[in-house]
Design a protein around this nucleic acid. Sequence first.
DNA 1: TAGATTGTTAATCGATTAACAATC
DNA 2: TAGATTGTTAATCGATTAACAATC
Lengths: 232, 232
Amino acid sequence: MPLLPPGRPDRVDDVPTATLERLPVYLQVLTGLAEQSIRTVSSTDLAERSGVTAAKLRKDLSFLGSFGTRGVGYDVVYLHGCIADWLGVMRPLDVIVVGIGNLGQAVASYNGLAGRGFRIVGLIDIDLSRVGESVACGDISVRIRPLADLGEAARQAQIGVIATPGSAAQSVCDRLVAAGIRSILTFAPGVLRVPQGVEVRRIDVGVELQILAFRERRHSPTSPWQPGAVSA
Amino acid sequence: MPLLPPGRPDRVDDVPTATLERLPVYLQVLTGLAEQSIRTVSSTDLAERSGVTAAKLRKDLSFLGSFGTRGVGYDVVYLHGCIADWLGVMRPLDVIVVGIGNLGQAVASYNGLAGRGFRIVGLIDIDLSRVGESVACGDISVRIRPLADLGEAARQAQIGVIATPGSAAQSVCDRLVAAGIRSILTFAPGVLRVPQGVEVRRIDVGVELQILAFRERRHSPTSPWQPGAVSA
DNA sequence: TAGATTGTTAATCGATTAACAATC
DNA sequence: TAGATTGTTAATCGATTAACAATC
């Protein structure tokens, strides 16, 4: 007797989470192939360029439909269109970025955000000396607004990006949620508390480096250390 | 008959990948608890603060050893020490950052990098007008060096961070690998090709946003669209 | 002791993989 | 037709979860 409603825990409309997380990568590779005027690609080739196995790629695509031709492969432009359509790239979402330090500015000026279905509609910073400054966000230029404008700006957006110091992250998060934001990308270390129904993804450079570092140290000939030999 | 050498595919010394990827998060939460002078924590509490279930937390820790006291919980400082020790935080690794735009500068000036076991030992940028400029990396200040110094700087490091535009990423990656780097963190879109034995982790803001966006669009009342109804 | 909480087991679940029938 | 490649199945594998005996 399952505790969750039967059917699809951790899935959205029968597409596994793991598959959803790879689709943007396939899309990216297909964009590159189209730019090179490559018309057709096999699952083997596309998989290799995407860093996955061919079996995994074909299984992933099979959740969306069947887009290839047996004996031939996939039409690059057609498959790109199908995945883009499925991911909803054509219906842009509005993004607000809070904390316009180096990181926030990097996100705001990220090239190709428009091409991936996003519009920067608000930039918020606590530092009044930066308020009023313009940041080039792709084609357009967006003015930095003060913290007091957070709620108003957030109400015009569907996605919030938190690029503040960790100490401010939870408070910013609360205000975004209060303004109706249900999708948050945070760069701040630490776990954000959000009500049910709000999705948070976290990017933590320190965590990524520590994962890399662990394996690096295991391979390193300079380290006489063994895991399990915990000192105290 | 397995194709991989029998034993532990995708594992490092019997610690599952999924567990390894959560350990830095636990460490971070424990650091916070120690700063608040909280002496003891239960698996339920620590798990909640880390955004995982208590069962998962206990299972994760069980791969490293048994650090708690039944009926009581975990000593915060002791557990922190054990995980930090196990992750190797005490033996710093040297990091080179290539591409000192907003993103590279954000990584370089990331606070607490030292506390997590990293030292920035090299900053490289192609823009000669920025060469010579100093960037504050925690306690110390590091001078930006020209692209020509990449190999020399990389030979002094164990980890490479690529924060260049996508077009330069593969070439930078090749040069890092040639200089002996085996652990790479890249922010550039697209998959890097590396020889066997080199580990790459990729952070792609666009991909993260697209994953968030998909679920956001599914919930959105303004979207009449259904997956599966692919247009062309 | 009684209450609490760990460490571990066994069951379940989701993701990956290999293989192959279908078919261009 | 012969060769190639997809879409799908069934088996395997890894990760998660619930439950509980051990024990502080």
